[in-house]
Amino acid sequence: MSITLRVVLIVVSVITFLYVMRRINKSQMQIGDSIYWILFSMVLVILSIFPQIVDWIKQILGIASTVNCIFLVIIFLLLMKIFSMSIKISQLENKLTGLTQRYAIDQNRFQKEDKE
């Protein structure tokens, strides 16, 4: 892994971290959701400082170049995030549906009570 790539990864990770912090300070992001991005940037920093870890993964999986292996790690982490977001969206939709239905039913009940 070239020095340039390592420096770029570290810089991008630090910027990500600061950006996430800014969002939290402005109350635009929940702490639970930020944990992933903090861990994500930590992993990138660690892999840039200790490229031996990447070399080790590379050998086990039989990947030719270190850079490809870095990409693989990043793709894996992003897929995990997409999967968990997909689950979360399903749950949110389900909750929103339930909430809307309950609201309508309560409204209906109030109207009936008013008439009586």
């Binding site: 912090m21 639970g32 930020s34 944990i35 903090i38």
Partner: peptide, 16 residues
Amino acid sequence: MLCMTISIFFIQWFRK
């Protein structure tokens, strides 16, 4: 525990 430790050490430190 993971969330709480990260939150206390990294996040609360930067919050205003």
